[in-house]
Amino acid sequence: MKHEICKVADVPQTGSLIAPFFGREVHVWRSGERVRAAANVCLHFGGPLDCKDGKLVCQWHGAAFDMESGDRLEGPAPKSVATDVPVDARRGRRVELCLGRVTCLRRMK
């Protein structure tokens, strides 16, 4: 089952949109023709992330993650962040996340 998190038209050409997802937040952004998403939570202490220059950066301790690969670039986070959360934007109007991914987002918090 999929859940609409935003409209494709709401996703900015640069930067990201923070959308609610069952009591949590996800960053949603464009990557070429694709729309991608990641939980808005750092894997260090669970701080919120900012979108800056192609990176998701922890507001608390400065851990930085590459938005394309999810790789940890710097900071105290122990591992990479998942930027490959399945997003369905093929219909061209809605951005949907699969409800089965809620477990993955919970593990990140």
Rank of each mutant, 00 (worst) to 15 (best):
Leu105Asn: 03
Ala77Trp: 06
Val85Thr: 13
Glu4Thr: 14
Thr14His: 11
Ala19Val: 15
Asp84Ile: 04
Asp88Leu: 11
Val87Ser: 10
Gly62Val: 05
Pro76Gly: 10
Arg72Phe: 03
Ser31Ala: 14
Glu68Tyr: 11
Arg72Ile: 05
Lys52Asp: 00
Lys79Gln: 14
Cys104Asp: 10
Met108Thr: 13
Pro48His: 12
Arg93Asn: 11
Phe65Glu: 00
Val26Tyr: 01
Val26Leu: 15
Asp71Tyr: 05
Thr83Met: 06
Glu33Gly: 01
Pro48Thr: 13
Pro48Asp: 12
Leu49Ser: 03
Val26Cys: 07
Val87His: 03
His3Phe: 07
Arg93Met: 12
Arg36Thr: 05
Val95Phe: 10
Lys7Tyr: 09
Met108Ser: 09
Glu4His: 05
Thr103Asn: 11
Gly70Thr: 01
Arg94Val: 03
Ala82Arg: 15
Gly100Leu: 07
Ala37Glu: 14
Ser69Met: 05
Ile5Gly: 07
Asp10Phe: 11
Arg72Ala: 01
Pro86Gln: 05
Met67Phe: 04
Pro76Thr: 12
Gly100Lys: 04
Met1His: 06
Thr83Ala: 01
Arg101Asp: 13
Pro76Cys: 10
Arg94Lys: 06
Pro20Asn: 05
Gly32Pro: 10
Pro20Arg: 11
Arg94Pro: 00
His3Leu: 15
His61Ala: 01
Ala64Ser: 14
Trp29Arg: 07
Gly46Tyr: 11
Cys42Trp: 02
Gly62Cys: 09
Asp50Trp: 12
Cys98Glu: 11
Lys55Phe: 08
Pro12Trp: 13
Glu4Gly: 04
Pro12Arg: 06
Arg94Ile: 01
Leu56Ser: 02
Asp84Met: 03
Pro78Ile: 06
Phe45Glu: 14
Ala63Asp: 00
Cys42Gly: 03
Asp53Arg: 06
Cys6Asp: 05
Arg106Cys: 11
Met1Pro: 08
Gly70His: 02
Ile18Ala: 13
Ala77Met: 04
Arg30Met: 09
Ile18Phe: 01
Gln59Glu: 12
Val41Gln: 03
Gly23Pro: 07
Asp50Pro: 06
Ala63Val: 11
Asn40Gln: 10
Cys98Tyr: 06
Gly23Gln: 10
Asp71Met: 08
Lys109Ala: 15
Leu73Thr: 08
Leu49Val: 02
Gly92Pro: 04
Leu49Phe: 04
Arg36Leu: 15
Glu74Gln: 06
Gly62Trp: 02
Ala63Thr: 13
Asp66Lys: 03
Phe21Gln: 02
Lys79Thr: 14
Phe65Lys: 01
Lys79Ile: 14
Trp60Ile: 05
